[in-house]
């Protein structure tokens, strides 16, 4: 039930704040994201720089880096995910408690980046875990990480907790864990999670020979 905005404004001037339970919960969740202290490669240095004095991620309530996935809400995939590391990343994601969010920081985490041609490099972490915000750059500047964080906060503020369009973590029927790939003899098995990512369809035109 929507509140008359004029009435809400009048009440606010008298110190009475009227809001919905949903916005209150989302406000709390968005304002205190605890990231997982988890650096993979070069981007991790810029992630650390973002938490330090000059950029000060604490202004956005996200400075409490937790080494344990059990205590973290936000996974910042900062760096190249190799095929050897991908199972551990998915396992860490599974160990985090809901609600949980993922930021793919940097070109490598998004698509493999400059190391895309490598035989051991995963071409994007979105093949295995759902990514909420992607930050391009190699590495992204700390300001870009802060912008990604603000974008994530805006997304969280819009989350629905009830109804057909509710968020994944509010759905009791959603699966609790994602399948963890194994490091096989040639490639990861499976090479991607079909529930999350579908390979783009390649249309080949018959050559006129």
């Amino acid at each position: 039930m929507a509140i008359d905005p004029k009435l809400a404004e009048d009440l606010k001037s008298q110190g009475v704040h009227v809001t919905s339970f949903e916005s209150l919960i989302n406000w709390g969740r968005a304002s205190s994201l605890w990231p997982l202290q988890f650096g993979l490669a070069c981007c991790a240095i810029e992630m650390i720089a973002a938490t330090m004095a000059k950029y000060d991620m604490a202004r956005f309530g996200a400075e409490v880096f937790r080494p344990s996935p059990r205590q973290a809400d936000l996974m910042i995939v900062a760096g190249t995910v190799t095929k050897k590391m991908a199972p551990q990343v998915v396992r860490l994601y599974n160990q985090m408690a809901e609600p949980k969010y993922v930021i793919a920081m940097g070109a490598c985490a998004i698509s493999g980046g400059p190391f895309k041609d490598g035989y051991n490099v995963l071409k994007g972490i979105d093949r295995f875990i759902p990514v909420d915000v992607s930050i391009p750059g190699c590495p992204p500047r700390p300001e870009a990480l802060l912008h990604g964080l603000i974008t994530l906060r805006e997304q969280i503020a819009k989350e629905k907790l009830l109804g057909r369009t509710r968020a994944r973590h509010a759905d009791p029927n959603a699966g609790a864990e994602l399948p963890v790939p194994t490091f096989g003899p040639h490639d990861l098995e499976p090479t991607f999670n079909p529930d999350l990512w579908n390979p783009p369809a390649i249309t080949r035109h018959a050559s006129e020979s």
């Binding site: 993979l40 190249t80 050897k84 590391m85 035989y119």
Partner: peptide, 14 residues
């Protein structure tokens, strides 16, 4: 080792 093996040497040969 090898959790960040990014094939730098192999890419450089190509």
């Amino acid at each position: 080792f090898g959790y960040l093996h990014r094939n730098h040497e192999k890419i450089a040969e190509a």
